[in-house]
Amino acid sequence: MSTTLEGYNFAYLDEATKRMIRRALLKAVAIPGHQIPFGAREMPLPYGWGTGGIQVTAAILGPTDTLKVIDQGADDTTNAISIRRFFTRVAGVATTEHTAEATVVQTRHRIPERLLREDQIIVYQVPQPEPLSRLEPRRTETKRLHALADYGLMHVRLYEDIARFGHIAKAYDYPVMVNGRYLMSPSPIPAFDNPKMHRMAALQLFGAGREKRIYAIPPYTDVRSLDFEDHPFRPIRAPHACALCASTDTYLDEVITDDAGGRLFVCSDTDHCAERQATAQEAAE
């Protein structure tokens, strides 16, 4: 493991910036699902790689925290490793790959399979915080729609899906209503993960660096996926068992194994999958 770098403030950002982000976070927690603007800083990685998530993590991290970073569920991909190493160097915090041991989980596109606890915080990296962005290009107008809770437009989009495909075709970034008031983008997590947000015990924070927005869901808050009475929300998952741990209730990634049509379905949450494999091995011995 690399050692802590000299010359950087704890967790890279200066204290004034962290205070500004914390103020935005407090406001975000006070109004669940409402997007709070904040002055996002340039970070030493490109936009789209998690600048928003990194800034939120930097603002909430303490010296005794244990950080876990996942990218599409995996702990061992470039993004996850880079961000983990970044915080090891600039904050000297402990890192882990085990969901159960982490106090802060920064994530891109997944929620861990293991239930999060009250003493944990999950930080999402968000590319586009505005759920209505594809439907209404004017930011001034979407702000007004949020203020008036005028969300008929989003249902029009779902209606169009059913009319065209016979079902709601949105499989990720599936819009949710938070606390019965604000329409929110859950970041591009699969719709499969949406039910996990509902009344989650952990605090959920969302950071969008390029779009300069922060929003949050406090613990035990109602989060409902939008749907129609006769076309209820369905969490979609590939109808297979994991090739490594045989799980039938986790979210699966499809892995192409050769160019002759060979493919494999494996858990997207690598930590959860490894844990299950270890338990199975113990039981076998």
Binding site: G152, L153, V156, Y159, E160, A163, F228, E229, D230
Partner: peptide
């Protein structure tokens, strides 16, 4: 809304006032 089907256009006002049953809309 030119990017939304005729049915969606007619249904928009219904959905805006709270209709949530696809078949009825």
């Amino acid at each position: 809304r030119l990017a939304v089907s005729a049915g969606g256009n007619v249904g928009e006002r219904l959905m805006a006032v709270g209709a949530r049953h696809y078949g009825n809309i």
